[in-house]
Design a binder for these strands. Structure first.
Lengths: 207, 207
DNA sequence: TTGATTAGGAAACGATCATTTCCTAATCAT
DNA sequence: ATGATTAGGAAATGATCGTTTCCTAATCAA
């Protein structure tokens, strides 16, 4: 008898011995190592310890160190995007949505989370110049952030919660710089209060 | 006869074979390598090529790789501080001084200079967590930047060029984040126009 | 049960890297 | 001129790192 849904069966359980680890969970552990140490300083051994994998399994699952890094970045971007859109959805007006988004960035920039740093910011400063694939990822992530900011500004201008006279493009670029900078400054150890004050200050730009 | 000024003679020409390179010039070359590659990825060989020094001379002059890095950072901070205070001195009012300072940061964040990146931002994201000496350097550099911004804001409030109602501390922290973020975003390749627009936008915060 | 397939994991490999060693070269004081 | 001192530089060293190899273990299909 013909198997009418072979791809479904394979999706449910691929051939061979099953993995003993959750890829996403392992990548979350790798993310911590990469975030605080950067790409170059994170050794395979150190990654293996954090991910609870030996070098062999790690290479079998992700190809090479760069593969782990790219997968960790993709995982990070995916999780953050979901969290962000959840936050934005809670806002009623464009202004409210934007403030929630800025507050979301701020909440990652203080205390221990702030010290950990942002893997995307790290990638931008460390290797964006020497890895085209990675450079494209970073660039498109930044463009997405910027476009999201600009969209919220336009929404706010439409619903009257944001002054119509400021240019959405320039404002979005400025807020992009501000949020990325918060992650850099946050590496030196900042407080919740300080980062909240930055958000409050940024909101003044919307009049 | 007693040499009444031995320290002066030594300062003019120390004993032994003289150096065949200018330390500051070599550090400027090292700075380029460290800025674009970061600390870990910059190899001694690569540094030697850029600085036109062999490993031996490099170790004799700077101790080790970390010594080159710290010296390059100190050189960078010293040069930038001089350029900055020169720019600030040109401004008449507090507002004018502040705008010149922001424009100075912006001028390093676009085009090829922007792609090169900032060694201090790189150090903050890459190794600030694992090197106390370096962490202190980064922190004090950021604190100095922030204090300078705050001072200019207060000057502007005194001479009436900046609105008296905004809090200098929160504003300085925000501008610190903004300027550091410009260097991160600048790594992805931005235009003079974009970065100028960010400065213009930031100036709106001053009323 | 057997074969195919994939994961787990220890060990080894080859390359690279930071650092040291050791010799030569240049300068100054005597 | 000679000794002391420091720089220049090639070569070697020891460690580490990313990666591969190879064997065992687990799962499914037949």
């Amino acid at each position: 008898m013909l198997n009418l849904h072979p791809e479904k069966r394979i999706a449910e359980r691929p051939p061979g011995r099953p993995r003993e680890f959750e890829a996403d969970q392992a990548l979350d552990s790798a993310l911590v190592v990469f975030s605080e140490r950067g790409y170059q300083a994170a050794s395979i051994h150190e990654l293996g310890l954090a991910m609870k994998l030996t070098s062999g399994s790690l290479y079998k699952a992700f190809g090479d160190k760069r593969g782990v890094y790219l997968a960790a970045i993709d995982r990070y971007l995916s999780v953050r995007r979901r969290q962000r859109s959840d936050e934005i959805a809670k806002g009623a007006t464009g202004r409210d949505k934007l403030e929630r988004l800025l507050a979301f960035f701020a909440s990652s920039a203080w205390g221990e989370t702030g010290r950990l740093g942002c893997i995307v910011v790290g990638a931008a400063t460390e290797i964006a110049l020497f890895d085209q694939d990675l450079a494209d990822r970073i660039r498109s992530s930044f463009e997405r952030d910027e476009a999201e900011l600009e969209e919220l500004i336009r929404i706010g201008q439409s619903d009257g919660s944001i002054a119509p006279d400021s240019e959405p493009e320039a404002l979005a670029c400025s807020l992009l710089c501000l949020t990325k900078g918060m992650r850099v400054v946050g590496k030196t150890g900042r407080t919740h209060t300080e980062m909240n004050a930055v958000v409050t200050m940024a909101m003044k730009l919307l009049s």
